[in-house]
Design a protein around this nucleic acid. Structure first.
Lengths: 190, 190
DNA sequence: ATAACTATGTACCATTTGGTACACAGCCTT
DNA sequence: AAGGCTGTGTACCAAATGGTACATAGTTAT
């Protein structure tokens, strides 16, 4: 019996892709097993709570990544413009021009929103808040900053939906570029 | 044995809500039966193709509604501004301020995009094209019209995602109002 | 060496899944 | 009133579902 020595954290990426591709309900244990290379034994060893715990862990990992790569820079960059630029670059890379779906957004739309409501809410709330803060520091008025933060985060999610629907990654990149442009114009306008 | 005299078209709304609430995979025949009040016998009588045919029928019904209430007015209204105004009103009403999800958008993001790819693509393509046309007729330059059309349709989808995620209908209404405002400023600017 | 702990595969479980078969009831035509 | 058509409920099916139990293999500590 081979010893593969997996850690819980090692399987999270594969697990995440599996949930992204098939949704929570669609990702059966068979698919999850195939995606991760783990049998049920190992799966239930790492995630005694079953599928629900797997999804929670994946959401937490995603949350951690965005916290580190996007939210924190937005809040803490010396120049808010640099934080914002970083957000766009990280976002474009993470979602692979709309070829990759936002799992948190999926969960928000879908079937299972209520089961993971708090994780979903917190993720988006912190994104909006961090961007709000950065825009404020960049010189926007409080409600200008708030409104734009909401519009931008929403706009990114919409870009993913539309790019997937039309099956055209350029849609995603185009929308993001124009959102970014819009923010720059706002900051120089005031 | 009571005769309820249902028609296929009568169950489509309930069927749609069921798919919206649970997703395609999540909507089991048991849930569908409960939502429609129909037993499997009737269900398979109306939709011999099973769940897939049910989903196809629902997508077609939604498509028809938008074609009638949104796309056609956009294309054919005497005043393009009136068509655009109608789009916003119909959209706001249909999605119930983001409390109701866009099934086509869900399918685009989710698990089952490929199975219904053509229906999904066509729906969004025709929406974008119709808005593009209206904006052009309102005086926008060809690529100004195209870009804004894409941004607006994407923006609406994103507004649904964000409103659901933050569980706050006002997010939806706020984003839509600002998108609408943005279009009006564009038309008066040129 | 031996004991304990961590992984892992296999076999199994009850339940639910989507789907089929079919008998039968009400309606329409003739 | 006889026969066909259209709905409808019930019983049923094989397959797949999420989940459990457990024996065992590898690793680490004693």
């Amino acid at each position: 019996m081979p010893r593969i020595v997996a850690e819980r954290a090692d399987v999270l990426p594969a697990l995440g892709e599996c949930f992204r591709e098939h949704g929570f309900e669609g990702a059966s244990l068979a698919l999850i097993g195939a995606a991760t290379g783990l049998g049920k034994g190992s799966l239930y060893h790492f995630f005694p709570g079953g599928k629900a715990e797997m999804a929670t862990a994946v959401l937490a990992e995603i949350d951690g990544w965005f916290e580190r790569e996007v939210f924190a820079p937005l809040r803490e960059s010396e120049s808010p413009a640099a934080g914002i630029a970083r957000m766009f670059e990280a976002t474009e890379a993470y979602f692979r021009s709309g070829r990759r779906v936002c799992l948190v957004g999926c969960f928000a739309l879908g079937e299972v929103r209520d089961r993971f409501a708090e994780a979903v809410r917190s993720y988006f709330q912190r994104w909006v808040d961090a961007l709000d803060l950065a825009l404020g520091r960049a010189g926007a008025s409080p409600d200008e900053a708030r409104r734009h933060a909401v519009d931008v985060v929403g706009g990114i999610q919409g870009a993913i939906v539309l790019a997937r629907a039309l099956d055209d990654p350029e849609i995603f990149s185009g929308i993001l570029a124009r959102i970014r442009q819009g923010l720059m114009e706002m900051k120089t306008a005031s």
